[in-house]
Amino acid sequence: MTTLLGVMPVVLLLACSRQLSSPAATETATLTHTTAVYRTVYVSTASQLTSALANALPGDSIVLADGTYSGHFTMAVSGTAAVPIILQGSRNAILDGGDINTGYVLHLKAAYCTVRGFTVRNGLKGIMTDGTVYNLIDSVRVYNIGEEGIHLRTFSSHNTILRCDISYTGLKTPGYGEGVYMGSAKNNWGTYTGGNPDKSDSNQVLNNHIGPNVAAECIDVKEGTTGGLVSGNYFDASGITGANSADSWLDVKGNYYNIDGNTGYNPSGSVLVDGFQVHCVYSGWGNYNVFTNNNCTVNASGYGFNIQLSGSNGTTVGNKVYSNNTVTEAVSGVSNIALSN
């Protein structure tokens, strides 16, 4: 029976019904003295999934049976802070876009949604968010993708990417093959954000495994974004290509990011140059980022932390690399800036 969340167990009249007809089996539970109706919707085909997403209500849990769901899917109905909409399944429930050359396998365009546990593969982009807030992408496997694995775009803020496994990205366009991509490059602001910075702010990327065979950076933080947290992740540089100047695990071009407690590994012989980088690609950006407690096995000619100080686009300020970071096998040293204590 469906679990009832966020409602006090006052005098109840529990009315349960199960609908087993197409498009999906649904359980509902209703409480007197409230208007809450929370449903568990079981799906086992692509058409049932499409229908369940289109007709979702706040509080719905859409449960994927194991199997392959072929197509491109859009989650555009919002939940609420108290009762999010949940889409969940095991790793054996697979959303398959069918072609690494086109389309988003899963397109999130809603607020207060959780996607959890299943697999996303075979699309130009794995999971794309546009204009989303307070979503959770949890324990999803993303692989075999033409460009980015997970992309937070178009003012997508306060979202969390947690415990995901991302590999084999950039199979079509290696230079766009980031594992996680936050925001939009300045050259795309005219397309997606009316010429304004893409303020995809305050997002968190936590405890994910990114790599191997992520063709560009494991994480790319774009100019125009502010105030995110990147923590507890494991980065594997095996298969990084160097295309489009991608030669680090993480490249920060935004402001006020906290990068803490990540572990980076680079096998000898890859094209990685530095472990972590900060760049100013647009004046006023690439500032006040803080690196703490990261463990870096670089095995490359560069630094553990390479902070661009100035360039043709401007000067960075306020970035700090703390002495509690651990760096091994970086030929140029721990950091190109003085360490903070």
Rank of each mutant, 00 (worst) to 15 (best):
G103K: 08
L20Q: 00
S90H: 08
G98S: 05
A76K: 15
K199V: 13
V290W: 11
A15W: 00
S90I: 08
G304Y: 10
L20E: 00
N295R: 14
L64K: 04
T263A: 11
T328C: 03
G228L: 07
N325K: 07
I94T: 12
T74P: 08
T191P: 05
G227I: 09
L49M: 05
R121S: 07
T26W: 00
A46H: 00
N208A: 12
S90W: 04
I337M: 01
I307F: 04
T193M: 05
A215I: 02
R39M: 03
D60P: 02
N324V: 06
S310G: 13
R39C: 00
V271Q: 07
Y322T: 05
G211D: 06
T160N: 08
M75D: 04
N122C: 06
S184E: 15
V290H: 14
F118Q: 02
G195D: 07
D220E: 05
V321Q: 05
K199G: 03
L87W: 06
S22K: 00
T26S: 12
I337P: 07
G146L: 06
L272A: 08
G149R: 02
V273N: 10
F155Y: 13
H107W: 15
Y176W: 15
V63N: 06
G194R: 09
S17Y: 00
G239M: 10
Y257C: 01
V140P: 01
V273E: 14
G304W: 08
M8L: 10
L4V: 14
A216P: 02
V298E: 04
R141M: 08
I94Q: 01
V105H: 02
S283T: 13
K320T: 09
I100R: 09
D236T: 08
D99N: 15
Y69Q: 10
D247P: 04
G67W: 02
S167N: 14
G175Q: 09
N313A: 14
N135M: 05
G304P: 07
T225K: 05
G59W: 04
H107C: 01
S51N: 15
P84E: 05
T173C: 09
D251E: 11
Y256W: 11
G195T: 09
S90K: 11
A215Y: 03
D165G: 11
F73P: 04
H158F: 14
S184A: 15
Q88N: 13
H33W: 08
L4N: 12
G264I: 03
Y69A: 05
L250Q: 06
A330C: 09
E329H: 14
N208H: 10
